[in-house]
Design a binder for these strands. Structure first.
Length: 240
DNA sequence: GACTTGATCCCG
DNA sequence: GGGATCAAGTCC
């Protein structure tokens, strides 16, 4: 509980948050693992979905930090981001790979593979393994801040669950997205290994982002250079 | 290199 | 409104 990242964690510059998320644990519906690869996207960034302004699809990115922005891509995949910076700033961190640590069997079942390295080593693999879909767009992934309020939509939507813009989602299936079932947490490791936000300290390596054509050189993909669970191996130079 | 579908764009 | 375009991926 106490180690769940507060919403304030995400209300910081997105590149900073991306760094700090490495080594944290992402859990969704009791399934998940250690974050080993992320990418940062920002409003003034040609590679971001929000670069050309607000649309129905990217609306969640313009909302308060700490929410999930889930988008559908390539005709068959979902990818998941966590909204960052201030309400309206439209920045987010794409979760690209996890080292699976919790709920391996559920992930194997959804993915159809046994090998742990094949479960969450890519943004769409990860959502498939965890069972994240369009219906999760807009759900909160951060713990309540102290007391009082941190953000929330101006029109009053808030609280725990679906605030997606598609008005759909059947609303009542409530399994994985039940209150508090989706969050990021500081990893429970020796205090000596903890950084500012208490996570297990990874060896952070920055590279250009994968699959983007605009701003192709911006080095906003961050990985744990020692992890074997990346979506793709580090180029030679980045290895140890 | 194929696959698959929906959001967005550009024209009208 | 309608058709063209192309996308923050995966495949083992």
């Amino acid at each position: 509980m106490s180690d769940r990242l507060p919403c304030a964690f995400f209300a910081r510059p997105v590149v900073e948050v991306a760094h700090d998320l490495l080594g944290c644990t992402f859990l969704y519906g009791g399934v998940g693992g250690r974050v080993v690869e992320v990418e940062a996207y920002r409003n003034d960034d040609p590679a971001s979905h929000t670069y050309r302004g607000r649309t129905p699809r990217n609306t969640v990115m313009f909302g308060p930090p700490g929410r999930l922005y889930v988008y559908f891509t390539m005709g068959l995949h979902f990818c998941v981001n966590v909204v960052c910076q201030g309400d309206g700033e439209a920045a987010a961190v794409l979760l690209r790979a996890l080292e699976p640590t919790v709920g391996l069997e559920a992930m194997r079942k959804r993915r159809g593979f046994q090998e742990p390295r094949l479960l969450c080593s890519g943004p769409a693999k990860l959502t498939q393994a965890l069972g994240i879909t369009r219906a999760d767009n807009g759900i909160r992934a951060c713990a309540d801040d102290v007391r009082g309020h941190t953000g929330g939509f101006a029109d009053g939507r808030d609280g725990e669950t679906r605030v997606g813009v598609d008005g759909g989602g059947a609303g009542g299936d409530g399994s994985a997205t039940a209150a508090g079932a989706c969050f990021l947490a500081r990893e429970g490791v020796a205090a000596a290994d903890r950084g500012r936000w208490g996570r297990h300290a990874p060896r952070i390596v920055a590279t250009p982002r994968i699959g983007v054509t605009a701003a192709a050189d911006t080095p906003w993909r961050f990985v744990d250079g020692d992890s074997p669970f990346l979506s793709r191996p580090l180029p030679r130079a980045g290895r140890r």
